[in-house]
């Protein structure tokens, strides 16, 4: 479904991705963790080309990501993304946030798009907020709206870029619950997150990154109980103590 082959990327003189290779199969759920600045966000942002990689190859659904605008558009239609800071459109109501892309990108009739939006709002359990503006919602509600917005494009793949890092602790669970449900429905997912409980519950594969490199890739049971790499162990020791 997604394949990265020896992807390299530099910001100025600093290398932020070093020979990153990763394969994600259809329906697989991958959790990426690592210290800040490890290149986790950059990696998943390369997958829908919010960032451009400079070396290596990225395939999404069999299409290679190149400078081809048509293919970029095709890939972005298939890949949904949820951001750390929600990035809802503040000038639009919740419902309009959800229907914007289906109407203009998928060319869906407005009625149909609205029905679809209400369906997903119910899935994330806030159908009653449809008429409000994002600024009137709590952080947890906003992030659930953002998830619903991505789902309205009926993507094959969902990318989560630290979706709970900007939330107050009491709101994290409501967002994770929605993500767990989504995982159980069989969606292909790549999540950058520090929520190790969530990782244990849903991940098929754990990826640990540090300083732009993939250090370790392992199924969660082995990843948490018997990490092979010293850096992974150190990181887990720090993060699990909290």
């Amino acid at each position: 479904m997604i394949e990265l082959r020896r992807v390299n990327k530099w910001f100025g003189g600093r290398q932020v991705l070093k020979d990153v290779s990763l394969t994600v199969a259809r329906g697989e759920r991958v959790v990426v963790c690592g210290p800040s600045g490890a290149g986790k966000s950059t990696m998943i942002r390369c997958i829908n080309r919010l960032e451009e990689h400079q070396q290596g190859e990225i395939f999404v659904d069999g299409i290679e990501l190149t400078g081809d605008v048509k293919q970029i558009e095709a890939i972005r239609r298939e890949v949904g993304m949820v951001f750390q800071h929600f990035n809802l459109f503040p000038h639009l109501t919740v419902l309009d946030n959800l229907t914007l892309a289906p109407i203009w990108v998928r060319r869906m009739p407005r009625r149909e798009a609205e029905d679809l939006a209400m369906l997903y709002l119910e899935r994330v359990r806030i159908p009653e907020q449809a008429g409000k503006y994002p600024s009137q919602l709590s952080g947890g509600e906003q992030q659930r709206v953002a998830i619903a917005r991505a789902l309205c494009m009926k993507p094959q793949i969902m990318l989560f870029d630290e979706p709970t890092s900007a939330l107050d602790p009491e709101m994290i669970k409501e967002v994770l619950d929605v993500m767990v449900e989504l995982a159980q429905s069989g969606m292909t997912m790549i999540c950058v997150t520090h929520e190790m409980g969530f990782a244990r519950e849903v991940a098929d594969l754990m990826v640990f990154m540090d300083q732009g490199e993939v250090i370790e890739t392992a199924p969660p049971d082995r990843f948490f109980t018997a990490p092979r790499n010293e850096r992974t162990r150190l990181f887990l020791g720090r993060i699990l103590r909290q």
Binding site: E64, T66, G67, D68, V69, K70, Q71, I72
Partner: peptide, 9 residues
């Protein structure tokens, strides 16, 4: 990479 020229960014 094979990109049709009219589609290349």
């Amino acid at each position: 990479r094979q990109v049709a020229p009219w589609n290349d960014e």
